[in-house]
Design a protein around this nucleic acid. Sequence first.
RNA 1: GCCGCGGUAGUAUAGCCCGGCCAAGUAUGCGGGCCUUUCAAGCCCGUGACCCGGGUUCAAAUCCCGGCCGCGGCACCA
Length: 511
Amino acid sequence: MLEEAEKRKKTEEKRLPPLPGAEEGRVVTRFAPNPDFVIHLGNARPAILSHEYAVMYKGRFILRFEDTDPRTKTPLPEAYEAIREDLRWLGIRWDEEYIQSLRMEIYYEYARRLIELGGAYVDDKPAQVFREYRNSGRLSQYPPRLRSVEENLELWDKMLEGSYGEGEAVLRVKTDPDHPDPSIRDWVAFRIIDTSRYPHPLTGDKYIVWPTYNFAAGVDDHLLGVTHILRAREHRQNTMKQEYLYRYMGWRYPHVVHFGRLKLEGFIMSKSLMKSLAAEGEEVRLDDPRFATIAGLRRRGILPETIRRIIIDVGVKQTDASISYTNLASLNRSLVDPEARRLIAVIDPVQLVIHGVPEPVKAEIPYHPSKPDMGSRVLVLEAPTAKAYIQRSDAEQLKVGDMVRLMEAVNIVITRKTRDRVEAKYHSRSIEEARRASAPIIQWVPASTKTLVTILKPEGLRIETLQGLGEPEPKARIGEIVQFMRIGFARIDAIRRTSGQPEIVAIYAHD
RNA sequence: GCCGCGGUAGUAUAGCCCGGCCAAGUAUGCGGGCCUUUCAAGCCCGUGACCCGGGUUCAAAUCCCGGCCGCGGCACCA
């Protein structure tokens, strides 16, 4: 218990700054992903922050899928559940869930209301014509904008009935026609998507008139009682657009916090790059450890708590942040180190023969150096001649005459060395002897082992493969995060049999 | 080009709103030491930053102006 408290203190987390205008019990936040892909660290930021604030103020947290573009951002049927899974894994629980494509009638109703209030009009001119008016400062004289409410309601019904094809009509919100930012002038609230050609995975071709992000999100944020919106800076203009809608409806716009972009150094974050890797014929999964997807980080042995802390640590600044993997790894290490069992693997093994061993050596090696309660296992060296494997990188450091200690076992002196074989003679048993000689300590496995160990090490776009041998009877579980002694932390990704031999496949996390 | 936002050590962040207690805190990295049967963890010491230039002021990282640089938006995407 005491130890637990100390650990908490050591890895103490930073707290989030107060939310403007927040009252305990009255805060409602939401995370609104587009289910066209899984989420990555960048999307996880608003999810974590929104959830965190809802918890901090004992409010509500909403998950809302924004799937109102079946054409250019076609929702992926499996993404809905994959996103839920990622959120659950991150420790995020939501009080309510909504899917926008299932709320279309609501948006239609509010569209009608907005038209009745004179806040929107149907534009059935080609987009090019609108742009000419808008960009030449004559938007206030744009003929469709001058239509009566009655006429607009009629045309709106025609849109819903399917009288227009794609691109033939949109519903626009009337804004300041001379707004300094042209993109804000009379923005589009609804457009037509031919769902017979681009069916929606949830609603098929039932609807052809679809709300844009700004309309659907704007309406929902009000209807669901959202009080605080946390979103990336690229939405700043959207906030201004939606405020027009709120003004017409007499609603109060939620508090908004904008933050900058997030990059994770050394990881692939771009969706298009992920997809192009797949196109190159590589076998690519969304949880590829080279990707900064939540699933990819999970597979690589990054804990949800690490992600949570790093997001809170980065906070809500407007500047872009580039998280260095060193920092993320350090945080993860501090969380994982107390729990990770120490396993042994020798990469690129070299045979070691030890002569003159006086009696068999049973080395009892604890699974964690400072936690005896995590147990131990016994590795054996035979007598009078013991055979083992050591790592090539270690063998290369050794010269004839050098003393080296096999971890938890014996001290030996090198007598002969060839490329693939090292011979040595027994020297002594005790650690003190090794210390006196300043002998290095290296890990080893008995020659009788059959266990193959493969460690996949993501390096930018590449994945390096480390092949070696492991303990004779490794007790590892899939999903477990272990530390391979003197190699680094890794997550056990698979345990299988390769031509009769057990094989552990692990994905390297960090040293 | 037009709108908008921002610039604190290698990285991230605190401080900036309400100028002095900041010759700038913390984490990570890096250098050195201690400890240690891992190149992990732990402990100690050290290292390193206010974009530039003006102005206001007794006093500016903090306020004002200009410049430079970075980023976002300018979609019938979200």
